[in-house]
Design a protein around this nucleic acid. Sequence first.
DNA 1: TGGCCCTGTGCAACTAGTTGCATAAGAGTT
DNA 2: AACTCTTATGCAACTAGTTGCACAGGGCCA
Lengths: 194, 194
Amino acid sequence: MSLPHAILTALLERPSSGLELTRRFDKSIGFFWSATHQQIYRELAKLEQGGLIRAVPGPPTRGQKKEYEVLPAGREELAGWVAERQDPKPVRDALLLRLRAAAVVGAAGLDVELQRHLELHQRQLADYTAIEERDFPPGKADEENRLHHLVLRAGIGLEASWIDWLTQARAELAGAELAGAELAGAEPADGEPA
Amino acid sequence: MSLPHAILTALLERPSSGLELTRRFDKSIGFFWSATHQQIYRELAKLEQGGLIRAVPGPPTRGQKKEYEVLPAGREELAGWVAERQDPKPVRDALLLRLRAAAVVGAAGLDVELQRHLELHQRQLADYTAIEERDFPPGKADEENRLHHLVLRAGIGLEASWIDWLTQARAELAGAELAGAELAGAEPADGEPA
DNA sequence: TGGCCCTGTGCAACTAGTTGCATAAGAGTT
DNA sequence: AACTCTTATGCAACTAGTTGCACAGGGCCA
């Protein structure tokens, strides 16, 4: 039940057409709630039908673009949702599952993936910190900005956590391989290498 | 495409019936890939039909319980999947969305939720570290254990990251409220409460 | 010996998200 | 005038996950 609320939020930040929303999702809200143009169009139709948003009349700019804005009912709905009780969804991560599978069928080929993921997370973190430097320089902090910054910091924290873990994981896997090859049976304890 | 692999992994760890799997999911694999009994039964049927697992003949124990075991084809499928190239799925978190929404409609009622989530994550972290102490005491470390421990540490890291962030978030929100209450009148702008 | 609970399997219907394709209007290009 | 590119909207079909319910067998116990 979150996509409609993501859309309401985006539309309150700025009234937009379906495609504009899609693009904006790709570079801000989409960092933590992505959506395809399909989902967005369908949801816009539902929201309009439900009386939460409406197509702004205005001059039909070009193509058959439709610009939407949030109605009072939509704003109320959103405000209610913000305070709603919702449990966090449990983690659902295929890479962890693959580690677990590797424990029974062998880790062949896994390190390539770990490294690739590590790089992806490093890139994501770099993107986030770039945004942080650009949009949230120290000092400037109105209420809205503080919240946006907070959200961004959650992303930064999570990426950092993955990077940290992936680094550890690669070290362990490399260690296990060596240990297996060299001592073959001495048992290398648990030790974090380096 | 991960559930079938989660099931193959669980069945390799120990052949089981549908309900047993469901229960085991609830307390280990389910930490990072949860599933209901429904999904599991459906998937078991598909896997059996696909020739990746089979119902162990054995004596029909009780009720009409069916125990499954993994066939060589299933093991191969799983080993292939471990090394497969799969991008991490982007974060999808409703709480972050709610913060973002709070930036436009006001944060009324949000702190209760932040605190509740904080407690939930603290509890989860406590569960994880309890498991860590129980199952991975320093010293004992065969190959399978090392990987299981690694997976657990990912969970620990993520929970810690959330706890850290939620603590920050609550502090900031509290600070903002105070600031808002004191200046009171600088410009009510949107919907900021109290 | 009939009622109830627990274990165990499963169908049906629904919600959410994804993928692939269709269509249409205007803008530039030759 | 025909062409093709970009912008923009949308349908249809599919996959994954969730929810609610049905039903069957065995154990227990009144």
